[in-house]
Design a protein around this nucleic acid. Structure first.
Lengths: 237, 237
DNA sequence: TTTAAAAACGAACGTTCGTGCTATATTGGC
DNA sequence: GCCAATATAGCACGAACGTTCGTTTTTAAA
């Protein structure tokens, strides 16, 4: 029945695009659900039949949009990346630079997991674990996206160092590794035990890491210690 | 054909046991392969047909040993736990106590991943990621085993504190969280990128964490800083 | 050497998977 | 209102899944 689309195909005007637009619209509706399912059940557990049922459309109709399961998985990964950029990267880049941005990245990341932007926690942590042993384009893409994230962290660290907010002894690659590991640690503790305390643990550990390498001017950019409940901890979405 | 067992069923003597012994032997041979496959392809990717083919025995013959796929998965998890205890827990407990044991646990854990005791890295990290969104006995067991590990870390930390090797400001739960997160970080960097440097990064980060909370007497129990290549880094298996 | 139990087998079951084909709706531009 | 294009549906396929069943082989004890 495709109750999914039956609305606003009124892209009117020159409709050489509109002809295409409807298909893209359904495609997007499919991917929205696909991301949700895949984040909880995995990219392999994301079956075409299941997805079609959830959207009350036929398997073949859905299938035609992608041509293969692998293409569907790749499209789903890309859609998840868009969401990640919108929810984590963009807000962090719009406010501040250098150390402030670095801290924002970590803080927003924790909120992104805590606020269940994806049902199964960090989409890419799950996808990476699922595909790390299966060579192929999906694995490559997921690894690439994770590398983007690490590169973003490293770039912010370098920037903070050049701005005199972090000391010269802060090795960008090493620090990025540690921050990322602590974030992932919070993610899995939350997924496996529902342990929300993990977020404040990760927060504390990250802040301690950042303070350790901060210059006096850098310290002013971080939330003050003492009370663990600074701004921007639990507020989400 | 069961080329698997055809040997040493010569348990001779009182063979009320030997009657049972042969079946257990096959079961164990099955689980050995099962652990290997599951660690690389996941506990769900561990299919009965595939497993039977790999052991050149029939699906039904194999199946009879477990009765259901879920039972097979549970048995596989248990077998992996035995290996983990043998490879990580036991060596750490046989040498030293308190802080020495704590460091040994971390160091041996890194070696356990680096040495590919399991093809897919840490078996339980993979299993936890795979099942964290699927309620049931398998998930519960995996979560329980991970909890055992965290409890072991915490206990060693407390012990080290009471022995005056770690300062009183070392919060066992917090420190255990951080150590575990850093280990897992090394695991996924290695799985996803084959990045062996991740191990020395994790090692450095862990040692810094431990040193930070160490008393002067505790410091003597840790490898000296400076050269990053202390004893017991790369040697494996 | 016979015997009863245990272990392994082979074939089939009902499902579900991904993926093709062909036909039918639905669409925007004329 | 008709047309070409696109989107969706219907149906079927071969393979693989977990599981069941009845039979045959292997085994240890009598």
């Amino acid at each position: 029945m495709s109750t999914v689309v039956k609305q606003m195909t009124a892209g009117q005007g020159n409709a050489a695009k509109a002809r295409k637009a409807r298909g893209d619209r359904t495609r997007q509706a499919i991917l929205e659900v696909a991301v949700d399912v895949a984040s909880a059940e995995g990219l392999e557990g994301l079956t075409i039949g299941r997805l079609a049922a959830e959207l009350s459309m036929s398997k073949s109709g859905l299938f035609a949009h992608f041509g293969s399961k692998e293409e569907l998985q790749l499209a789903t990964v890309e859609a998840a990346r868009d969401i990640f950029i919108r929810e984590v990267i963009r807000p962090s880049f719009e406010s501040g630079k250098g150390l402030a941005r670095l801290w924002k990245l970590c803080d927003v990341w924790l909120a992104y997991v805590r606020g269940e932007v994806f049902r199964g926690g960090c989409f890419f942590a799950a996808a990476a674990a699922e595909f790390d042993g299966r060579p192929g384009p999906v694995r490559d893409r997921v690894a690439g996206i994770r590398k983007e994230w690490l590169a973003t962290l490293r770039a912010s660290i370098s920037e903070a160092r050049e701005a005199g907010q972090l000391n010269a002894d802060a090795d960008p690659a090493q620090l990025a590794f540690e921050l990322n590991a602590l974030e992932m640690g919070a993610n899995w503790a939350f997924q496996l035990y529902g342990d929300r305390q993990a977020f404040s643990r990760a927060r504390d550990a990250i802040l301690e890491r950042l303070r350790r390498h901060s210059t006096t001017s850098g310290l002013l950019l971080l939330p003050q210690p003492g009370k663990g409940r600074g701004k921007g901890r639990a507020r989400v979405r």
